[in-house]
Design a binder for these strands. Structure first.
Length: 302
DNA sequence: GTCCAGGTCGCGC
DNA sequence: GCGCGACATGGA
């Protein structure tokens, strides 16, 4: 058996200011498997299968969890990591923490709006993402028509039943590939993961990717307009208006609100004296934020 | 047992 | 476009 090899990568090109801890805990994703957050050590870890199939355990930490100027990624895997593996790990880390997203216009927008106080720490506003959009979309599907405990349970089982284990520590499991999900079929998903009627949607998504009918990267490419991407997302089974807006947020496009029961409840209490607002009334509240509406809502209640 | 959860689909209008 | 019932699952 080959020994595991450990590689340490330093990431020094990061936004300023940057808040590692606030970014990780910005929304619920860090509580979903295979993410693990160590609060006392301020360390984010995750088993990850790279595009070559190599499985690595990643541990990300900061020089300072709140006033972060430097990140360290300890990557453990076998066989030893190639330069390409290391480049992919850097890319994954940058995607998860949105290190290449420019929020200066959002911060400026806040300064120019009267009467708004968002709960935004210096370096805040970056919402954690998965290493790949595929995982983000599956997570999102697992938040529809279910409470948070149900989301945690479904993701836990998807990973536990279908993910790729770490050879030396099989209790660590990476998020499954589209192939792994497509292979087992919707009946297995329904029986073993508790996805319920979502099983068909998750299986269809994975199968379309495996068969080359769906290319999430191409579909959401930078040069495409938000409107084009939105129309394509809405065509996916199981992805409606809420999920589309959530996925657009994950892509760094904040002009649509993900209106769900949680938002209705929060907005109702804060702006409508407990009365249920219409969707149009909710949109009107955040309309002044233009292309930053999702972030404005999110940090209106944190 | 009933209701509902950080919704969406397919139908009929 | 809008309103409506159905849809799996598990917890309150």
């Amino acid at each position: 058996m080959t020994p595991t090899r450990q590689t340490t990568l330093l990431i020094e090109t990061i936004p300023s200011p940057f808040n590692f801890s606030a970014t990780v805990k910005s929304h619920g994703w860090y509580l979903l498997r295979p993410f693990v957050w160590d609060e006392t050590e301020s360390k984010l870890s995750r088993l990850q299968q790279l595009s070559t199939g190599t499985v690595v355990h990643l541990q990300i930490s900061a020089d300072d969890p709140e006033t972060t100027t430097k990140l360290e990624v300890i990557a453990e895997g076998e066989p030893a990591l190639t330069p390409e593996d290391q480049a992919e790990i850097r890319q994954i880390t940058r995607r998860m923490l949105r290190l290449d997203e420019d929020l200066t216009e959002f911060y400026h927008h806040q300064d120019q709006l009267e009467g708004w106080r968002l709960d935004l720490q210096p370096g805040g506003g970056r919402l954690l993402r998965c290493p790949t959009l595929f995982e983000d979309v599956i997570y999102t599907l697992c938040t529809t028509n279910i409470n948070w405990a149900g989301t945690v349970r479904m993701v836990d089982r998807i990973v536990g039943k279908l993910g790729t284990p770490f050879p030396r520590k099989p209790e660590l499991i990476a998020f499954p590939t589209p192939q792994a999900i497509a292979q087992v079929g919707p009946a297995f998903l329904k029986q073993e993961t508790g996805l319920g009627y979502r099983s068909d949607y998750v299986w269809e998504l994975a199968t379309a990717i495996v068969e080359g009918r769906l290319d999430l990267q191409a579909m959401t490419a930078q040069h495409r307009s938000t409107e084009e991407i939105r129309r394509d997302l809405l065509k996916l089974k199981g992805i409606g208006h809420y999920a589309t807006a959530t996925i657009l947020m994950l892509l760094g496009r904040y002009e649509y609100l993900a209106i769900d029961s949680e938002m209705r409840s929060l907005v109702s209490e804060k702006y409508f004296e407990g009365n249920r607002p219409t969707d149009a009334q909710i949109r009107a509240i955040y309309a002044p934020w233009e292309r930053w509406q999702y972030l404005a809502y999110w940090f209106d209640f944190r």
